[in-house]
Computed example of a mutant assay.
Amino acid sequence: MAERPTTSWRKGIAQGAEELAAGALDPNCACMAELFPEELLVATDDVLDMFDAELPRLGEADDAQILVVVECLVLALNVVNEAHGGSAFETDEREGLCAYIDESLTGHGVDVVALTARHGLGRYELTDRWRKW
């Protein structure tokens, strides 16, 4: 099962807090909690929860059904991103979210390479048409 990006973000926050408390991290470099406020983490997890709930039926779904689920996910993440000044998901976060989507679909029987190829897309272009983050 794919690890959610929010899980690694939370781990980074915890690690930063531990290092800060131990005096091993300069307070000026302790930025994880600021980059990933709890409100952002919860909102992102809420969206990913909806996506995860759809995954079990996608292995047998047709392309249109799969693409609707991906579109809804991406549009919901757009809303989360906009609610956080349009900068909640920078390069690393985008890559993590896209990898999570790909790995989750693959883990539930969706051939992402074939799906994207049938629609004239490269494997890593699945979210591009709707993504604003």
Rank of each mutant, 00 (worst) to 15 (best):
R4Q: 13
W9F: 14
K11F: 07
K11M: 08
I13S: 09
I13Q: 06
A14G: 02
A14Y: 01
A17H: 08
E18V: 00
L20Q: 03
L20A: 03
A24V: 00
N28G: 08
N28V: 01
M32T: 02
E34D: 11
E34S: 06
E34W: 06
L35S: 01
E38Y: 03
E38C: 00
L41T: 11
L41Y: 03
L41I: 15
T44S: 10
D46P: 01
D46E: 13
D49G: 09
E54A: 15
L58A: 05
L58H: 05
G59T: 06
E60R: 13
D63T: 08
A64G: 04
L67T: 01
L67A: 02
V68P: 01
V74T: 14
L75I: 07
A76V: 01
L77A: 04
V79S: 09
V80C: 05
E82M: 07
A83S: 14
H84Y: 10
G85Y: 03
A88T: 12
F89W: 08
F89S: 07
F89E: 07
T91F: 15
T91A: 08
T91G: 01
D92I: 02
D92K: 09
E93Y: 07
E95S: 10
L97W: 04
L97S: 02
Y100N: 11
E103L: 14
G107N: 09
G109H: 07
V113R: 13
L115G: 06
A117S: 12
G122N: 07
L126R: 01
L126S: 08
T127E: 15
D128A: 12
D128R: 15
W130N: 04
R131C: 08
